[in-house]
Write a protein that binds this DNA or RNA. Structure first.
Length: 329
DNA sequence: GTCCATCTTCGGATATAGGT
DNA sequence: ACCTATATCCGAAGATGGAC
């Protein structure tokens, strides 16, 4: 915002408003730009990345006021995409897109003032931490169970579970409700951060192989859920009916890849549109399983693809299937 | 006090990031 | 690309603390 001030005569005030009951506090800017009043929702992102772009696409139509991204640095290609999507932004280098008739600002090509400081994500949004957060989001009641249970279900070591739980408590995502009863709170916020981090870091580490399949081979295929489940676009298509999948994502266990590949006549191809990922979590034995993975994961898969097409569907999934998981009692 | 479940700690293995 | 420094993770072993 400071940068914007140097570009045009501008006065504004910033205030935090609460969004919904459990939502995270939202920044809102109010002021006048060359004589015209404005109210903007402000999204602050020090390190602006591809997945953040996807997040903004979702946020764009959610509120009553236009969105403004305040970022550390927006690369030229990203700037063009934001402009295309009608999302306003400013960065500290002096790049900006503001569309507030009659004012139109469009500046690009300025280099970042200094190289961005270290990201410092903390251990809860990396590798093992992401596995734990995912299982906790899916099954919040686990938060109150022994670490051994959490570690087992998430497929990580006991000590790591303890570490991550401490990290979550530190950031206020785990609270001590009663004497020894922990609760997972601020789940929607946690999920948002999880999904972005999953798409960026953990996901590629889970990739077991990439293949090529015959055209629409997945259509009408009956998956044995004990061996594999759909993620990504195919799952999204099954859940919503929208989307024409261009890629297929399967989550399976390491020792079942071979049979999956043979049964579906998949050919190894490093640039193929079929990806097989490690189904890292431990599934609930009793429950009847869907042939699609948890919608949390489907959403994150779509985020990893991150184009306009998949984000439309991601938005539908978010609204129809995910919001129910964020209710806290 | 003993037993058992659970939690914390920590050395070493492994993955990641930064530098050349 | 490689090498090196650092962060992250694992897992076993020791510590804690509640129930009886």
């Amino acid at each position: 915002m400071k940068t914007l001030e140097t570009l045009v005569p501008l006065e504004f005030t910033l205030e935090a408003v609460q969004e919904g009951r459990t939502g995270k506090p939202l920044l809102q800017a109010e002021g006048r730009l060359l004589g015209t009043a404005f109210v903007w929702r402000v999204e602050e992102m020090k390190h602006f990345k591809k997945t953040d772009e996807a997040h903004l696409l979702l946020q764009r139509d959610r509120g009553t006021h236009p969105l403004l991204l305040a970022a550390g640095y927006v690369a030229p290609e990203a700037a063009a995409r934001l402009k295309e999507a009608g999302i306003q932004f400013v960065d500290t280098a002096g790049n900006a897109f503001i569309n507030h008739p009659p004012v139109l600002i469009w500046t690009t090509g300025k280099k970042p003032a200094e190289k961005a400081p270290l990201p410092r994500t903390g251990r809860i949004f990396r590798g093992a931490g992401l596995k734990i957060v995912f299982t906790l989001l899916c099954r919040p009641e686990l938060a109150g169970k022994p670490y051994r249970d959490i570690a087992e279900t998430a497929g990580v070591a006991l000590g790591t579970a303890a570490n991550t739980m401490a990290g979550l408590a530190e950031r206020g995502f785990i609270v001590q409700a009663h004497k020894r009863e922990k609760k997972l709170v601020r789940r929607e916020e946690l999920f948002g951060q999880w999904a972005a981090a999953y798409a960026e870091t953990l996901r590629q580490k889970l990739l077991l192989g990439r293949f090529h399949g015959e055209r629409e081979w997945w259509k009408g295929l009956q998956l044995d859920t004990a061996a594999a489940q759909w993620g990504g676009e195919v799952a999204a298509w099954k859940l919503t009916g929208y989307l024409k999948p261009e890629t297929a994502t399967l989550y399976t266990n390491r020792n079942r890849i071979a049979e999956l590949v043979v049964a579906n006549k998949l050919k190894k191809d490093p640039r193929g549109n079929v990806e097989i990922l490690d189904r890292f979590w431990m599934r609930e034995k009793e429950r009847q399983e869907d042939d699609t993975v948890h919608p949390f994961l489907v959403y994150a898969d779509l985020l990893a693809i991150g184009d306009q097409r998949t984000m439309e569907t991601a938005k539908v999934i978010y609204e129809r299937q995910l919001t129910e998981y964020f209710r806290e009692d």
